[in-house]
């Protein structure tokens, strides 16, 4: 057993890559949930984004087009959920699960002729001398653009919710759709926008998997990442920066357990494979008990169906 062989700078750099898909999906879901919508279809939107992005990137040769297509694909699919829950007033839990089922099927149909192809490479951003700073250079300045985009999205969501009027309206809708409606805000429109944003972000997260982290297309390649994103939102108690921490923590535990094994530390593998989930549960418990405030931070109308005349 030799822990000294694990280089913390490399570990941190790896965990940022490993966490980016769930971070993107989680920050999108946060916005949807803040508007009072619980969309359990993240996995379905992610995998759809993964294939849309992959197809676009392969066909155009441009990863940028790929990510754009992924965002559009995720958003379009999320509108199925949006229309059903907002206009047809269907149950959000069931509709979200159906969305995942449908997305998994749809994506593998779309991807049938894209198996075994290589997408155009996504290069790292060149920060010049910054990349050579000891430790920090490796951790912070040797990544591809999407890692930074994901952090920028987190910052933007934070600023949007905290400082803008539109953000205030979104939160109002999520807290009490009845009151928001009475004040003249368009509850359904706000929610549809939030759902679409969630879909777009989930799509980006999926495309990060198929274009950067893995990079290839295989059926079911998200392998549960969408569900983790859902957990991260609660873990982060609906606060953007905490969601970032949560995603990095989860990615970190996953990467660390593989690194411990690679370093030859005698670890019970099955139990370590469980550890990210167990630790997430533990943190959920701590977050939701403690001062009880985190739990109260949940949008009050989360998951409840809104109908104007009710």
């Amino acid at each position: 057993m030799d822990l000294s062989t694990i280089n913390p700078a490399i570990l941190l750099a790896s965990l940022m890559i490993a966490s980016t898909p769930i971070l993107l999906a989680a920050i999108g879901e946060l916005v949807a949930e803040k508007s009072g919508v619980l969309n359990l279809g993240v996995e379905g939107m992610m995998i759809t984004g993964a294939i849309c992005g992959f197809i676009a990137a392969v066909e155009t040769g441009s990863p940028t087009m790929g990510f754009l297509a992924a965002a559009v694909g995720g958003a379009v699919l999320s509108m199925t959920f949006g229309i059903l829950t907002q206009f047809f007033l269907s149950n959000q839990v069931a509709t979200g699960l159906a969305l995942t089922l449908f997305g998994l099927g749809l994506s593998s149909l779309m991807g049938q002729s894209y198996v075994g192809l290589k997408p155009p490479p996504v290069g790292d951003i060149n920060f010049g001398p910054l990349a050579d700073i000891p430790f920090l250079g490796r951790v912070l300045f040797q990544h591809d653009a999407m890692v930074y985009v994901s952090i920028l999205i987190v910052a933007a969501v934070w600023a949007f919710l905290k400082f803008t009027r539109a953000g205030l309206i979104l939160r109002a809708v999520g807290e009490s759709h009845g009151a928001a409606h009475a004040l003249g805000y368009k509850v359904v429109a706000v929610r549809l926008a939030a759902i679409a944003f969630g879909g777009a972000c989930a799509g980006l997260g999926g495309a990060y998997l198929s274009l950067v982290r893995v990079p290839q297309w295989t059926e079911g390649m998200t392998a549960g990442a969408g569900w983790i994103a859902l957990a991260i939102v609660v873990f982060g108690s609906w606060k953007p920066w905490r969601v970032l921490i949560g995603a990095y923590l989860f990615g970190g535990v996953t990467v660390l357990q593989l690194n411990l094994q690679a370093a030859g530390v005698e670890v019970p593998v099955e139990y370590l494979s469980m550890s990210p989930y167990l630790i997430t549960i533990l943190v959920l418990v701590i977050m939701s008990s403690g001062r009880g405030r985190a739990a109260l931070n949940a949008p009050a109308s989360l998951g409840r169906t809104f109908h104007a005349s009710s």
Partner: peptide
């Protein structure tokens, strides 16, 4: 038929069931 088509088909069945449910309550 590919297995994925069946999966998508089941997803559709659900979507429609959830959608038309609105007629029961509204």
């Amino acid at each position: 038929l590919p297995a994925a088509a069946i999966q998508a088909f089941q997803g559709m069945l659900l979507f429609f069931l959830l959608a038309v449910d609105v007629l029961t309550n509204f």
